[in-house]
Design a protein around this nucleic acid. Structure first.
Lengths: 137, 137
DNA sequence: TCTTGACTTGGACACAGTCCATCGTAGGAT
DNA sequence: ATCCTACGATGGACTGTGTCCAAGTCAAGA
């Protein structure tokens, strides 16, 4: 994930081996790891990395808008590196697998003013649920 | 919430004072309490009610489809008694207030087959986010 | 009124995440 | 190349949310 590392460096981040490893672990499409999964994979490359550092680093990346925090199951939050292309999520109700999806249509235009209760609505998330091919077999 | 109590009784539920109080606490529109909030309010009427009973009762009501579990903030789950009218949620990003909303449009028809990855998609949730009137003032 | 199995209780436990004092080090200064 | 120092890493304690379990209690049918 040299892209992400470059952007972070450009923002004045001090580059440490821990941050490098966390960024590398998060590279790829359809990646939605929990903080502990990130920690486990990072520890594969850098055995002494602490949980606190992983939490700190993920939190900073989220604050910088470089990764997205997703909580689709009410359990552990998951971290999605695909922060620069708007997308929604499709979740398997059986095994929990998550895919990034791109619905057409704009939910914001589907919310009438009378249904906004005076809110200034600025964002939305859609979560689709169903059975993945493996679980419906 | 005699409605809910009636339906539960009709399903063979043993009616206890604890269950009655939990159902009563959940009565109303735009009610989205956490389990601990339900416990606190229930304890106002029935001081010895235990947390475990509140969790059990809420879990059973969810399983029966009489209330809906909502997790909009990655923190505590909230319980929504409005289970019999399809709706979505509008959440204040500042204070966390939740309102039930009814968007037009059907997100399911907005998800092309090519974007379903072989899933059998059966449900969806939309969460709108923004500032409520109090917080934007 | 009696009986019984479903329900409740409180406390221990598990998991996800945060906080903090201390130590280590990246990277600018010399 | 070395030194400095502020920023980052560490790990262990702590909090919040939720689950589990053995023992006691009670709703409701006989």
């Amino acid at each position: 994930m040299s892209d992400l590392l470059e952007r972070l460096r450009g923002r004045g981040w001090r580059m440490t081996s821990q941050r490098r490893v966390v960024a590398e672990v998060l590279d790829g499409d359809h990646v939605h790891l929990t903080a502990d999964e990130v920690h486990a994979r990072a520890a594969g490359r850098l055995p002494e990395i602490s949980r606190a550092t992983v939490y700190n680093t993920l939190g900073e990346m989220v604050a910088l808008g470089e990764i997205i925090e997703v909580s689709t199951d009410g359990r552990a939050k998951r971290y999605d590196p695909n922060a620069h292309h708007a997308h929604q999520h499709l979740v398997c109700t059986s095994c929990g697998t998550i895919r990034d999806v791109h619905p057409t249509g704009d939910p914001l235009s589907d919310l009438p003013a009378a249904e906004r209760f005076g809110f200034t609505v600025s964002a939305f998330e859609v979560t689709y649920r169903g059975l993945c091919p493996d679980c419906s077999a």
